[in-house]
Nucleic acid binder design. Structure first.
Lengths: 248, 248
DNA sequence: CGGATACTTGAAGCATGTCAAAACCTGTGG
DNA sequence: CCACAGGTTTTGACATGCTTCAAGTATCCG
C-alpha cells in the first residue's frame, strides 16, 4: 500500500542482499524469504545477532516483548508455568523458525534456550511496521502459525491419549524429523543429538523424569534405539520407531 | 495490486451489505468484518447456510476440503482419531469462529457438530482467492490462528500437568467464558447449557467418561456447581470455580 | 581427582482406567 | 398417563500405569 521511497534513498546498495543475510537459512525457508532486498537491508540495519547458552530466556511470560527473533541454530523451548511450579513445554522452535507473538505485547509463555542457541533479533516496532506493509511477510507468518497450530494439535492428541511409551517414541520421532528432515523420509537409519535433557523431555510429554528414563531404557533394550553419552541417539530403523508411536 | 473492477460491474447495489449478512455476528467479531460491502456481496453470492444436527461431520480428516465455514451458532469440535480408535478433541469452535485450514487441501483433523449447529459456508476457491486479494481478511485469519494457538497451548498445559479435578474445572470455566463472555468477567454467578456430553468432555480432557462424571459429582457435592438435567450448569461463584483450576 | 549435574533403577502408593451394573432422562406409542 | 426402549450418566469394586521417594551410577568439567 504505502510508498516507502524513503528507504531506497537511505541505502545506495538497496538491491543487494545484506551480507549478514546472504547465507542465512531464514532467507530460504524462514520468514525473511518474503522480503525484498530493500526490506531486508532496512530490517538488517536494526538487527542484532547473539548467542544464548542453555536455559537463558528469550522472552518471559507476563513481561513486555520488545524483540522478535529468528532461530538460526539450536532449539528454543516455549514453556508455561503454574503457580505451584508445575511446568509444561508447549512448543519447540527449530531453525529457521520465527519466535514472537504479533498483535499482543505480552503473553503467558516463556521462550528459553533449550540448547545453545543463536538468534537474529529485531525490534518489535520495526517488524510490526513491516508486517503491516508487506502482505507477503504476513502470509509467511500466518503459514508458520498454522503449521504451529497443526503441531500443537498433534501434541494435544499425544498428551491426551497416548501411553508413556508411545509419548517417548513420538517425541524421538519428532526430533529426528526436525533435525534430519530428508533422512526421516527415507526408511533408513538416523543419528542425531538429543537437544533436550530428560527433564525437558518430561516437561514436554507431561511425564516425570523417571518415567522418561524408564521408557528410553525400554526402547534401548528393544534395540529400537542406540544411545551413547545419554545424548546422541541412533535409530537403526525408523519404521520400527514409527510403529512404537501407536500401539504394541 | 490486482484490480477487481469486474466485481463492481456485476453488482449494482455493490455498496450495500447483503441482507443475509446484516444481522450476522461474523460481520462484527468474525472474519467478515474485514470485508468491504463489495467483497461481502461477492462472497454472499456463493454462500450457503445450513443446519447440522449433533455428530454430523463438517470436514473429514484425510478428505479434500471444498468449503470453509463460519459458525453462526452451536459448537463445532475438532477431533483427531488414532488407528486403534482412541480419540481426542483438539479444538472447539464457537460462533463466530472460522472453520477451515487455508494453504492445505486436507488435514488430520475432522470437524464435527458437537451440538446442533448452523453454519455459513463458502467454496474454498472463492475464499482462497479473496484471501490472496485482501490483506485485511488475511490479517483477521492470522489473528484467529494466533488466538487458537494460544488456546491450544493452554490446553497442552492442562492435559500435560493438571489433575483430573483441575481439568474438569478448567473445562467448565472455559465453556462459561465462551458462552457468557461478559458475565465471566464480573465475579458473579453464571448459568449455561453444557454444549458437550460427558463422552466429548472426556475426549477433550484426555480422560474417561467415568472420571469426568466422578469429578463433576465432586464439584456438585462441594457446591461449586449446581447441575440440572445433566446439561444445564449454574456456577454460583466463579472465583470458587477458578480456584479449582490450579490447586487444592 | 572431586564435586556437581544428569541419568538410571527399585519399591511402594495413588490417581485414573477398566469392567460391570444400576439409575436416570427423553421421546414414542399404546 | 403409563410403559418401554435407547442413549446417557452415575456409582462401585478392582486393576494398573505412572508418580513419588530414595538410592545409586554415569558423565561432565573444573
Amino acid at each position: 500500500m504505502g510508498a516507502n521511497q524513503a528507504d531506497k534513498r537511505l541505502d545506495i546498495h538497496n538491491s543487494e542482499v545484506p551480507v549478514v543475510c546472504r547465507a542465512c537459512e531464514a532467507r530460504h525457508r524462514g520468514i525473511c524469504g518474503a522480503l525484498t532486498p530493500e526490506q531486508l537491508s532496512h530490517l538488517s540495519r536494526h538487527t542484532t545477532r547473539h548467542r544464548l547458552s542453555r536455559d537463558v530466556e528469550v522472552t518471559v511470560a507476563g513481561e513486555d516483548v520488545h524483540h522478535y527473533s529468528n532461530v538460526l541454530s539450536g532449539v528454543v523451548k516455549l514453556t508455561r508455568l503454574m503457580a505451584d511450579g508445575r511446568q509444561q513445554i508447549v512448543g519447540l522452535q527449530f531453525a529457521p523458525d520465527f519466535v514472537g507473538r504479533p498483535f499482543r505485547p505480552t503473553g503467558e509463555v516463556t521462550a528459553e534456550a533449550a540448547t545453545n542457541v543463536s538468534l537474529c533479533s529485531f525490534p518489535r516496532v520495526v517488524m510490526d511496521d513491516m508486517i503491516a506493509r508487506s502482505p507477503d511477510l504476513e502470509r509467511r507468518l500466518y503459514q508458520q502459525a498454522l503449521d504451529e497450530l497443526d503441531e500443537a494439535r498433534e501434541w494435544i492428541l499425544t498428551l491426551g491419549r497416548k501411553t508413556a511409551a508411545e509419548k517417548v517414541a513420538s517425541f524421538l520421532l519428532m526430533i529426528a524429523e526436525n533435525i534430519e528432515p530428508e533422512a526421516a523420509e527415507s526408511n533408513g537409519s538416523i543419528c542425531f543429538e538429543l537437544p533436550l535433557k530428560r527433564a525437558d523431555i518430561a516437561d514436554f510429554l507431561g511425564l516425570t523424569i523417571e518415567t522418561v528414563s524408564r521408557q528410553i531404557t525400554k526402547l534401548r533394550k528393544a534395540r529400537v534405539i542406540v544411545v551413547e553419552n545419554n545424548r546422541s541417539v541412533t535409530v537403526p530403523d525408523i519404521e520400527r520407531l514409527r510403529a512404537r508411536c501407536e500401539a504394541e
